[in-house]
């Protein structure tokens, strides 16, 4: 259960005046069971990268390996449906994909496509909807009656109901209220921890990266800039500058303390730990 990109490049509309090389020579491995953030400026190629994971985009050079599926440049991959069954991809603005008359039917759509029976699909749908916090009284409503945030939850439930081994989320919290976004991130973390599912999450929110992820991959102009663990990343000012990223408030606060002469260990990255650390020093 691992994901591996080898010398992967992707060019949009090759051979036309609109040709655009969106990914260049990406070499990257994602370990199983981790929660990894994929970050980078707008247009850096994050969406392009994750769409390779379930064969929506095929590499124009190099290859990508997902478990025992190997997708090579220039070759049509025959077992694409099998691949998609194992990799759940939640799109940027996923709320636009709802189409059935009722919420429950929409969520059952994925599992049914992948061969689940009617009852099985329904049962999975009920469970997924509960996980994302949609209550039973809404199951028979039309998806169009929901608010944007609720639609997003239903769309995510639609992917969870497929029971993927790898969950890929493209900016799942963009446009949600802060509390709703935090709940969503908690949910992904729980899925990651409890079921051992590999989670890749594209995000612009550094607080989320800091609070929930194990690892971070930084893209810039279609190239892989770095791949490190969270504490190394947020400790190193150079890295953040190179990635063009504003540090999260806690990192900024630690920097401020450092300037004033109070240096704290690198792995202190949550408010509780920080408070305990500071309190400990002044008690001494």
């Amino acid at each position: 259960m691992s994901i591996c990109f080898e010398k992967l490049s992707h060019e949009y509309s090759p051979g036309t005046p609109f040709a655009f090389l969106a990914l260049k020579d990406i070499n990257l491995t994602f370990a199983e069971g981790k929660m990894t953030a994929i970050i980078g400026a707008t247009g850096s190629g994050k969406t392009t990268l994750v769409q390779h994971l379930n064969g929506l985009l095929l590499p124009t050079e190099g290859r990508v390996t997902v478990n025992d599926h190997v997708i090579e440049a220039g070759k049509k991959y025959p077992k694409i449906k099998d691949l998609r069954k194992g990799v759940g991809l939640v799109f940027q603005f996923a709320e636009n994909q709802l189409f059935e008359e009722t919420i429950i039917k929409d969520v059952s759509f994925g599992p049914k496509n992948f061969g689940a029976t009617e009852e099985e699909a329904r049962e999975r749908a009920v469970r997924s909807l509960k996980i994302v916090g949609i209550t039973e009284d809404m199951f028979e409503k039309s998806p169009l009656e929901l608010s944007g945030g609720q639609k997003r939850r239903v769309a995510i439930a639609g992917i969870l109901a497929m029971r993927p081994r790898i969950l890929v989320l493209d900016e799942p919290t963009a446009g949600l209220d802060p509390q709703g976004a935090a709940n969503m991130m908690e949910l992904f973390k729980r899925i990651n921890k409890e079921n051992g599912i590999t989670v890749l999450i594209v995000t612009h929110n550094m607080e989320h990266v800091l609070d929930y992820c194990d690892e971070v991959v930084v893209l810039g102009k279609g190239r892989l800039l770095m791949q490190t663990d969270i504490s190394t990343f947020f400790e190193n000012e150079e890295y953040m500058k190179k990635a063009g990223i504003d540090p999260p408030s806690i990192v900024r606060f630690k920097r401020f303390l450092k300037e004033k002469g109070l240096e704290l260990p690198a792995d202190v990255l949550s408010i509780e730990e920080l408070a305990a650390e500071i309190a400990g020093r002044y008690r001494r």
Binding site: N54, L56, R84, F91, M162
Partner: peptide
């Protein structure tokens, strides 16, 4: 563009 996006989103849900 929109059609392309929805096509991909549904393909991820097993539409063939």
């Amino acid at each position: 563009e929109e059609a392309d996006r929805i096509l991909k989103a549904q393909a991820s849900r097993g539409v063939d």
